[in-house]
Design a protein around this nucleic acid. Structure first.
Lengths: 226, 226
DNA sequence: GTCCTCATTAACCTTTCGTTAACTCTTCGT
DNA sequence: ACGAAGAGTTAACGAAAGGTTAATGAGGAC
């Protein structure tokens, strides 16, 4: 289940952007515009983390955080600020902020920081498995799974490695020797034949989506079109 | 009692300065110069937090952190770097770094960040669950008990640790080497066989609930489905 | 000392999957 | 059009991984 984030941000654009980005990253985001609304939301349900803008018209983030932590001492929180002032950062940290982001900031960094805070805070990290969408399939390299709407295949490790490699180099010609050197460490005749068997197996797996093709380029290698 | 900090920093001046500053702020600081020394210290005693320089001659901080977190998954760590590169920061956070300081940095800020990390970490300690529901079983890690409606097994310490680890990582593939590094501290052949024996025993214990499965993934590890 | 407990090692068996083999189809140079 | 070589496909093989049970032995309790 997704982690719940309460985002307190008065800036319309940034707030919207943040919400969207966090949602892409599988967080459930509720967005409010000021401290009063934040309190109302917190009363209704539990959140996993609180993201606060420091600069807000009615009540600044610090004051709000101070009050909220009195009532909800265990909720992790993180400040976002436009000001690049040392005093502000220190003030936030002094209040016990779990972290601090200075605008303009990198959205990926924010996501990682949230994850790390939650990992420390909650016992169980429910990690969204890394996945790649290939046509109608969802490919989870770490779990060796190729999932289509109808069925689910368990790939072997080597099948998975090969599919990953093809995917990483999709859309252009991949040399046979490159695949062999990369996955077999030696590009001799027998390994080449072995690879052909794997290609054949992958093609069978992927045949459920006719838009996907592992096109072979005679004498050179393959072109993974997806 | 003072919190124990293990500082891994090869730079003589910065290392000395940091140590002094942290000691002024009532931390107990042990300072080492490379990964090997760090490992030796960690084996001897528990630390509350690890501070790592990213740039070190023999082994960089990232590689070291990756290895150490396998063996000591709960220790909070924080990177220090001179490089002001976004990639570095992201790399560190991806590894699960609790925080990141960019040189030159403010020493007060570092102290606050350490305090906040510790506050977060200790919060977690309180949350160690007394019992976990796994299918029809109630698992009490502390009491080494696995209780089903019909019977009650007394697990050994290691069985319990393994079950905890599997449970914490349930639902996706857990690498053999990760389990071994975590519970056996060494991933050699014999420990691997030993682990297989434990897996077998856990399977026998858990067989009363057919919805639970420790699926093995050849060449990779296990997937605990429950 | 003797008796337990429990992790490890050994021994034996089963299963898996990368490789090899065998046969076919396709491509391309002559 | 023919032959050779590359590639596709399927089946079979066998080494290595893993499952299971029993034996071993180290360490603690009494």
């Amino acid at each position: 289940m997704a982690h719940k984030v309460l985002l307190v941000e008065d800036d319309l654009d940034l707030g919207h952007l943040l919400k969207q980005y966090l949602e892409i990253n599988h967080f459930e985001v509720h967005r409010v515009f000021n401290g009063q609304e934040a309190r109302a939301m917190l009363e209704q349900q539990l959140y996993d983390i609180l993201i606060l803008d420091v600069m807000m018209p009615k009540e600044d983030g610090f004051t709000l955080a101070k009050k909220l932590t009195l009532q909800y001492p265990n909720i992790p929180f993180l400040f976002v600020t436009a000001k690049k002032m040392k005093e502000d950062v220190l003030k936030g940290l002094k209040l016990g902020a779990d972290d601090y982001m200075i605008k303009p900031f990198d959205a990926d960094e924010l996501v990682y920081r949230i994850h790390n805070i939650l990992r420390r805070t909650q016992r169980q990290v429910i990690q969204v498995p890394e996945h790649i969408q290939i046509g109608i399939f969802r490919f989870e390299p770490k779990n060796l799974l190729l999932i289509s709407p109808r069925a689910q295949f368990a790939l072997t490790e080597k099948e998975s490695q090969l599919l990953s490699y093809l995917y990483q180099n999709r859309g252009s010609i991949i040399k046979r020797t490159d695949i062999l050197n990369h996955l077999w460490k030696e590009a001799d005749f027998f390994n080449g034949r072995s690879m052909d068997v794997f290609i054949s197996r992958l093609r069978k797996h992927l045949s459920a989506d006719p838009t996907i093709e592992i096109e072979s380029v005679r004498g050179v290698g393959f072109n993974f079109k997806c």
